Amino acid sequence: MSFSPQSRVWIYQSDRKFTAIEETEILNKLSAFTNQWKAHGNELLAKAEIRYGYFIILTVDESQAGVTGCSIDSSVRLVKEIEQEFHVDLFNRFNIAYKVGGGVKVQGKEDFETLVNIKQITADTIVFNNMVQNLEELNTKWEVPFRDSWHSSVFAHLL
């Protein structure tokens, strides 16, 4: 299944890593959802994935049918159900994810700021820009060095 680079994406970042069992269960739920996801009765070309054990990514190719407010609401409802069932926080925009070694870590804003202060997070640290809007941006602007991210403007005084 081929998706347009302009396909819309939504990224939900967990405050903790999913276990392998949780990841399988969540992917099953997401798959069941995306297979029947509709907008005004039109099937949406959609997929869902989990990356790094932390990020739920929903993708919709709108070249076939556009996403509507109702269809977005239904996806948010599903993500909220996942949040409750698996006791994770998927909507906290103050949790910041970054790479360390081969893995991903998530910190709250204050702890992240401390790590920048003590130079554990540097201009070269890869951070995740969950604000990307489409597949092309996901592939090119999602994982970026701290210096090139929106995070650096928030924490610029520390660099």
Rank of each mutant, 00 (worst) to 15 (best):
M1N: 10
F3T: 02
Q6I: 11
S7C: 06
V9Q: 15
W10P: 09
W10C: 07
I11L: 13
Y12K: 04
Y12T: 04
T19H: 03
I21D: 13
E23N: 11
E23F: 03
T24E: 15
A32E: 03
A32W: 02
F33P: 00
T34H: 03
W37L: 05
G41Q: 10
E43T: 01
L45G: 00
K47F: 03
A48S: 10
E49Q: 12
G53K: 07
G53Q: 09
Y54A: 07
Y54K: 11
F55P: 02
E62V: 02
Q64A: 01
G69L: 14
G69P: 14
C70I: 12
I72E: 09
I72F: 10
V76I: 14
L78E: 08
I82H: 03
D89A: 09
F91S: 08
N92Q: 08
F94N: 15
F94L: 15
N95H: 10
A97D: 08
V100T: 10
K105H: 12
K109G: 03
D111G: 03
L115Y: 12
K119Q: 11
I126P: 06
I126H: 06
F128P: 08
M131T: 15
M131P: 01
V132T: 10
N134C: 12
L138T: 05
N139D: 08
P145E: 07
W150Q: 13
H151N: 13
S153I: 11
F155P: 06
